[in-house]
Computed example of a mutant assay.
Amino acid sequence: MAKLLLNMRYVPEDEAADVRAFLDEARIDWYQTRPSPFGISHGGIWLRNNDDLPRAKALMADYQRERQANARAAQAQAERDGTAETFADIVRADPKRVVLIIIAIVCLIGFMAVPGYMLSR
């Protein structure tokens, strides 16, 4: 029976390509399912043979550790260069969205506080 190695929800294409490449390099038999048309499933990368699961998970853990280190190094370099995205950059790029999110947060906090206020009276 097949085992799911990677759920494709929120997985960028470059990461999926890397996973497919290291599975091929390790000669692990896999297949990929596509997202469903209604958005219920986002697809995944599956292993055909259950015996390959421990080795594939070990390869996946190594890959994720390396990817995390590279992402952190790139973020640190962007912060040193002054090119990292800041809150001010986000506000300048899409001020309406930021204002709407802040209004939504204030409303949610207000809705959560109303029962406490009503009970204290």
Rank of each mutant, 00 (worst) to 15 (best):
Trp46Gly: 07
Arg121Tyr: 11
Ala113Glu: 11
Ala2Thr: 09
Arg20Trp: 00
Arg97Met: 10
Leu4His: 01
Thr33Tyr: 12
Ala17Gly: 04
Pro35Phe: 05
Ala61Pro: 03
Gly116Ser: 09
Glu79Arg: 15
Ala2Met: 03
Ala113Thr: 13
Ala21Ile: 01
Ala78Cys: 07
Val98Tyr: 11
Pro54Trp: 08
Arg92Asn: 15
Ile102Pro: 00
Arg48Phe: 06
Asp94Val: 06
Lys96His: 13
Tyr117Thr: 14
Val114Lys: 08
Lys96Glu: 15
Gly110Ile: 08
Gly110His: 04
Pro95Phe: 04
Leu5Tyr: 09
Lys3Thr: 14
Phe22Tyr: 15
Arg48Val: 13
Tyr63Gln: 03
Ala93Phe: 12
Gly110Ser: 10
Ala56Asn: 12
Val19Asn: 04
Ala78Gly: 03
Asp18Lys: 12
Ala26His: 04
Pro95Asp: 11
Gln75Cys: 01
Met118Arg: 15
Ala2Ile: 01
Ala84Tyr: 11
Asp62Ala: 14
Gln75Thr: 09
Leu53Arg: 10
Gly82Arg: 10
Glu25Gln: 15
Thr83Trp: 06
Leu108Ser: 06
Val114Ala: 12
Pro35Val: 01
Asn70Phe: 01
Phe111Gln: 04
Ala21Phe: 11
Glu66Gln: 12
Glu85Pro: 00
Thr33Trp: 12
Lys96Phe: 10
Gln32Thr: 06
Ile28Tyr: 10
Val99Phe: 14
Met8His: 11
Ala113Met: 13
Asn49Leu: 09
Glu79Phe: 01
Asp81Ser: 10
Gly39Pro: 04
Arg97Ile: 03
Pro115Glu: 07
Asn7Pro: 00
Met118Gly: 04
Ala74Cys: 04
